[in-house]
Design a protein around this nucleic acid. Structure first.
Ligand code: FES
Ligand code: FES
Lengths: 144, 144
DNA sequence: TCCGTTGTAACTATAATGATTACATCGAGA
DNA sequence: TCTCGATGTAATCATTATAGTTACAACGGA
């Protein structure tokens, strides 16, 4: 890799904007705050919708939270958009030489350790709700 | 992203093989266990060498650990090969609209949370030494 | 001196990402 | 009912990381 897709930070941005903005949040409006193309926004909103985090008013336009701010954690958002193939961020090279004791067994040992490490990260994300994040945002920006 | 590069799992594989194999570990020998091209192995060994984890006998051939197995953690290996640009695995979209309260402030708030999550993962990796990993490998494979 | 090995450069193919254009569809309001 | 703005989505393109491969100079022990 290098880095995760910026889908994640954009998704958090979108949800925060919806939470804070009194205006109707169309993809054009959001795109202006994020500073990207509206289609990028719509794609990400599509994933958030599929995860049950928001609903959209088709035709008329506008995206709205489907849950309370304190019911959405950063982990929920992460899961909604990250799409780490089957959820694992660590890659294990496949098809090692089975006749070598290391090649035959290292995969399961390595994988176990990686699952632990990844879980530690995800638990951390699970402890932060959008409510907390948005309140920190408000502090920094004075008011909206 | 999707996933981290398999460089990481291959690096762990290489170090484990060196620790367990009585034979001289040339890139060809290692490549056969990992089941890939020797050049891939040499590239990764180059990174491990730069990190001070192994040394190589040029000319003659063979790679050897430069530290004790209990002095090398999975975090050391991760740092040696992962090259997550400047070390951050989470991406934050840049150049948001500074005139929008969310765009102006979300980056620093988001970044703080991500650093915490990433640290939790890295701490987990720091708690596993190659010694532990290799001993688990031995258990699974009987003996070498 | 020979010969196997290392260290790199160069090239290719594949895949993910981000951006963009295009357009069918929807739905509220005139 | 018709219009108009918004959504949903397909298609295309440029950029970048990765993995694999060939080629070859440099090294150093036998
Ligand atoms: S087999 Fe996955 S670590 Fe080498
Ligand atoms: S500015 Fe980085 S989250 Fe939108």
């Amino acid at each position: 890799m290098k880095k995760f897709s910026s889908r994640y930070s954009i998704a958090v941005h979108i949800l925060s904007l919806i939470a804070l903005s009194p205006a109707s949040c169309t993809s054009d409006f959001i795109a202006e705050s994020v500073n990207t193309n509206p289609v990028i926004i719509r794609r990400i909103i599509g994933m958030l919708k599929k995860a049950g985090l928001v609903h959209v008013r088709p035709g008329t336009g506008g995206t709205y939270l489907q849950k309370g701010l304190d019911e959405i954690t950063l982990l929920d958002v992460y899961r909604a958009v990250e799409v780490a193939d089957n959820g694992n961020i660590f890659n294990c090279h496949e098809e090692t030489n089975p006749r070598c004791p290391v090649g035959a067994n290292i995969e399961s040992v390595f994988r176990t350790k990686m699952v632990q490490a990844q879980s530690a990260m995800e638990q951390e994300l699970d402890h932060v709700t959008l409510k907390q994040l948005v309140s920190e945002l408000k502090e920094k920006s004075g008011s909206i």
